[in-house]
């Protein structure tokens, strides 16, 4: 298993036209296949619990479902893109870029720093534009890895 935050298999540039839960589950499946999540139901429960506290949709078409979960083995990002958009509860409309962020329960702070720098990138216009325009999952994965390097 790679120790990188994101790999090519964790990128889906064409999420099926569906709802929030199904979109999260399809991205979570990729985390399971990459052996980063051990128990998908438990992981989805934890994500949903966080989602219920406050919707994770943000202005500008971004959804960031996330959680810290005992079912996660390494800090990971699964990235999905939807052309029609999926409702993540943001006031200005559905999300086209979905970042499923998985953090282990007791992650050390070096690992967490990668997630922190990912979260900061989400606020930058150029980061969003690159991901919206990308055509190749491998390019997306390497671009994100490069961006979040400490």
């Amino acid at each position: 298993m790679s120790s990188e935050l994101i790999t090519t298999e964790l990128v889906d540039l064409d999420l099926p036209d569906t709802d929030r839960r199904a979109a999260i589950r399809s991205l979570a499946d990729r985390l399971v296949n990459a052996e980063r999540v051990t128990d998908i139901e438990r992981f989805l429960d934890d994500v949903e619990t966080r989602e219920q506290q406050m919707a994770t949709g943000m202005r500008g078409g971004i959804g960031i479902p996330h959680c810290r979960s005992a079912a996660v083995t390494a800090p990971s990002l699964a990235f999905g893109r939807s052309s029609t958009g999926i409702d993540f509860g943001s006031e200005d409309g559905p999300a086209n870029l979905i970042f499923l962020i998985a953090a282990p329960e007791g992650g050390d702070s070096d690992h967490m720093a990668v997630l922190a720098s990912l979260a900061r990138r989400l606020m930058r216009g150029e980061f969003k534009r690159t991901l919206l325009d990308a055509n190749d999952p491998a390019v997306v994965a390497s671009y994100v890895r490069e961006e979040v390097k400490p």
Binding site: A103, L115, A119, L122
Partner: peptide, 29 residues
Amino acid sequence: PTGIAHTYMAAEALEQAARDRGDELSVET
């Protein structure tokens, strides 16, 4: 609450907004 996403996004957003205004801002995440 989870300390992995919004904490840092908020910090980034505040830093950017401060730069745009020409203000100085230090953030503790």
